[in-house]
């Protein structure tokens, strides 16, 4: 019977790096504000995975608490951000991020 090693922490970190990168690509290339928003949630989720993997392999709970606070902040961000999208849609009839340039200098 061969010995199966347990999962190394680096694999969790690599997975979370890949998820984060996919989120970055989406946030940089998509034009729909809601999809950009979802990609930001994806990035926050990847960071949470890093926190929890490291807190597991360093045998500490601080990372878990950090991830908890990240989730709370993401919920607040979702509420305010989506309200802003609704408001922009009301005044401009679009949420294409290329056309929302009124704050551009």
């Amino acid at each position: 019977m061969w010995v199966v090693p347990s999962i190394p922490p680096a694999l969790f970190l690599v997975l979370s790096a890949m998820l984060f990168t996919i989120g970055v690509i989406g946030a940089l290339t998509r034009r729909n504000a809601i999809i950009v928003f979802m990609c930001i949630e994806l990035m926050l989720n990847a960071v949470n995975l890093t926190f929890i993997a490291l807190s597991r392999f360093l045998q500490s709970l601080d990372g878990v608490l950090f991830a908890f606070f990240v989730i709370a902040v993401a919920a607040a961000e979702a509420a305010v951000g989506l309200a802003i999208f609704v408001m922009i849609y009301r005044s401009r009839e679009t949420i294409n991020v290329d056309e929302i340039n009124i704050l551009k200098w």
Partner: peptide, 15 residues
């Protein structure tokens, strides 16, 4: 919340 907002807004096809 996101799905609800997507249903509220009439999103056009991405140009």
């Amino acid at each position: 919340l996101i799905v609800f907002i997507i249903m509220l807004l009439d999103l056009e096809i991405e140009v």
